[in-house]
Amino acid sequence: MIAVLAAATKVDLAVFAVSAVIVMAGAFGVVFSRNPVHSALMLVMTLFGVAVLFVAQEAHFLAVVQVIVYAGAIVVLFLFVIMLLGVDQEENVAAERLRGQRPAAMALGGLMFFLVLLLAQATNWATGTPSARGAASGPGENVEKLGRSIFTTFLLPFEVTAVLLVIAVVGAVVLVRRSPSLPEEGDAEDEAAPEPRGQRRDEEVPA
């Protein structure tokens, strides 16, 4: 029995270590890729790693939703927009517009990391109050417990998210719709902009 537990710990440790490496590699890939398409694919890698960590913590439903919604839908949406805008050319990551902005960002990020760790370590946040929403462990499936909680305790927020999704759909349609009455504007003040890539520049009348 002891040997089985020790083996389980080793396997869990290995799963955690490998997924942590995958997650961090994907995150660095998102930040440091020159091509936005590569960034999106690296984002998929990170999302899969996080899904594995969800499984390791017995959040099975969330792991599946993570893969379907994030890796399946959201990243595909990103790729659609990248292709639609035609911005998949490489960006010069090394070029720095604001002097000293990048080291300052790195320093601030590191400072934030250590402050978060300090904050998490300084106080014991768990008060020991028993949960009002039910235990995560115990008998029964994860999906069952999650569903029971959502459809009883969190029923009103759940229905509000439905309204939110409808608003998002309508908003996206309104935002992206081309209105035929408005003339194409916005090119006039672009004189200082870099070399155009789009095809709309062809029909532009020189001022």
């Binding site: 949960s131 305790t153 939110l164 908003g171």
Partner: peptide, 28 residues
Amino acid sequence: RMLDDIGGQVAVFFVLVVAAAEVVVGLG
């Protein structure tokens, strides 16, 4: 998992929904 409370997972569920809506509007 640490506090043995399903409420954390419910919160993640809502974050997922809001993130999907946010991505749609933001990309629009």
